[in-house]
Design a protein around this nucleic acid. Structure first.
Lengths: 241, 241
DNA sequence: CGAGAAATTGAGTCTCTTCAAACCCCGTGG
DNA sequence: CCACGGGGTTTGAAGAGACTCAATTTCTCG
């Protein structure tokens, strides 16, 4: 099953015909190497990008030159579906590891939306789930730093799980530096590091090579006060079709 | 011109037929008084709400009991269009002043979307602009408090202007306590107050009664480093029709 | 094995918070 | 018409959390 379909079906019910049409719209894969932009801020792409493998992020550069990460992107994510609706991208998408991606021209997205309102609804849902994730990140205020970091790790784990990319007992295919995490949390590198160290010393997580491993999911969830509801997997609203 | 149409046409080109259909879907207005919930967190409304007058906010209650405001809502805004796509609302919508609202049943929204893909696109755009606003709020990190407060005031002004509700030289029809602003900024009441005082002493803003007035728009914009692009008024992407 | 990137650690500083009290505006009732 | 009361605003001071700076260690990969 194509990774895009795993994503789409995790969002909503999608018929076989619609699934086939979606995959059919994909262009051949492209490789992007770590540190490169997949789409850059201010550009007006004429296609939307589907992540096939690797980790990327949406980010903005702050007035003082530092980077703020708005959300992480995993395989299956349509990183710039946003641009289909907004014309001009108000943030960049950068590769945090080597990535493989595939494009769908906006014209094809438009055609899909017109022919299959249910697919349009699924795409819409995808962008709104992003909003929901942002809502949750905004809740950083009101949590301790330990809780925030734990919460972010929980989210990372669950989102990988949703597309079948987490193997129990094995590290996640998630490679990001502590600087990346700090940029996403809006914390300094030093403080992030010390907080992660606290989680390690509690034996909740570990690092195997450059990869993150969760040692005690129950405890981590408890520390983070994590409730995955905001990721909205499969809680469908009124079906359109 | 109906306030909803001012909003829709500020988002995208909408034909006369589509405009008529949208307004036709509205139910008779309802009054909500200050402090009441328009929609409560965790509910699964079967309609979406259009603000006709007043100020409201989307909010979440944090673990420690304090409120975090995710975004303000002004006349014309479809406060819980979100719920059409998400089924379960992950945040509440509360009235910050007495409000007048009108509903559109989800079933009618679905019918509109099916019959007019261009309207569906406009609705989609609306939810994505919300995301864009959140992106900008997230940028609080990386700005000084003075800049953040000034930026929020700029946004409030411009959004009122977009629906024709700001009269030059007159105070904005925006009534929110400093506690409301603090909850939106993620700052303490005390600090918010002191920052607002700083803006007042620079003669950039003033308060007339309980209303906000902007005295020096150019300077305020400069202090905030404000660029309204992220509100995406009228920068249309590919039209669908 | 060596070089550069990433992670770790310590120390000093500053912003923002919390606590607490006073003040002011405005509607209500005597 | 004025006293009263309550919500909202303003102010001061002390404390905690997070940041920056800077040095050191560890990891990763050619």
């Amino acid at each position: 099953m194509h990774i895009l379909l795993r994503k789409l079906t995790s969002l909503h019910d999608v018929s076989d015909e619609e699934q086939a049409a979606a995959v059919d719209a994909l262009e051949p894969p492209t490789q992007i190497s770590r540190g490169q932009d997949i789409v850059s801020e201010g550009s007006t792409p004429s296609y939307t990008t589907v992540m096939l493998s690797g980790t990327a992020c949406r980010y903005k550069i702050l007035p003082r030159g530092n980077r703020h990460i708005l959300t992480f992107q995993y395989p299956g994510d349509m990183t710039d579906l946003y641009s289909y609706v907004m014309k001009k991208l108000d943030h960049g998408v950068g590769a945090l590891s080597n990535c493989s991606v595939s494009h769908i021209p906006h014209a094809k997205v438009a055609a899909l939306c017109k022919k299959y309102p249910n697919l349009a609804y699924t795409f819409w849902r995808d962008t709104v789930v992003d909003t929901s994730i942002l809502h949750n990140w905004a809740l950083g205020e009101g949590r301790t730093t330990l809780e925030r970091v734990a919460h972010m790790l929980c989210e990372i784990f669950v989102r990988f799980e949703a597309v079948g990319l987490s193997e129990p007992g094995l590290p996640l295919p998630f490679t990001a530096t502590q600087q990346d995490l700090a940029d996403a949390l809006g914390l300094s590198l030093v403080h992030t590091n010390k907080t992660i160290a606290a989680l390690k010393s509690r034996k909740l997580i570990s690092r195997t090579g450059s990869r993150l491993q969760i040692l005690d999911w129950q405890q981590l969830k408890a520390v983070a006060n994590f409730d995955p509801a905001y990721l909205h997997f499969k809680d469908r609203a009124i079906p359109i079709r």
